[in-house]
């Protein structure tokens, strides 16, 4: 059921990992993303871009996932950057104040270039 509601596509650009989210990120599907991010970080990947282009919905539980690892990746010089959000999804992040905590960009390319700059 979760696979139908929510999928993650993994891509690599050098040492930067790109996760493309699709579907509904809620309390039921958030553990899927949390384990995907956890696996990446456990394998030593600390430069991560999360693409939201195909994400239709995010709940408060989905937002919480991004707080779990952010300190860990930043302590090792990495970051989690967020890109290509639909306006409705951006509004949810914006109301909670995420733009003050995370870099949210319009295109993956911008996020990738910030890691290589």
């Amino acid at each position: 059921m979760n696979d139908v509601k929510f999928t993650i596509d993994h891509q690599s650009f050098g040492d930067v990992k790109l996760l493309k989210l699709q579907g509904y990120l809620d309390a039921h599907t958030a553990p899927h993303l949390e384990s995907a991010l956890g696996d990446l970080i456990q394998d030593g990947n600390h430069k991560i871009v999360v693409n939201f282009k195909e994400l239709d919905y995010i709940s408060s539980a989905g937002l919480g996932v991004f707080m779990v690892y952010i300190e860990d990746v930043r302590m090792t010089g990495g970051d989690i950057k967020l890109s290509e959000m639909k306006p409705k999804v951006f509004t949810v992040f914006d109301l909670l104040g995420f733009p003050m905590l995370f870099e949210i960009v319009e295109h993956d390319q911008i996020a990738l270039s910030k890691f290589t700059a």
Partner: peptide, 27 residues
Amino acid sequence: AGHMPFLVKQHGGVSVVTPRGLGIGLA
């Protein structure tokens, strides 16, 4: 603190008021 905006009726008009503020526990 990260909550939904205030909806305000003032001087005959209505507006969505969204002062900047982070959710509690995020930072």
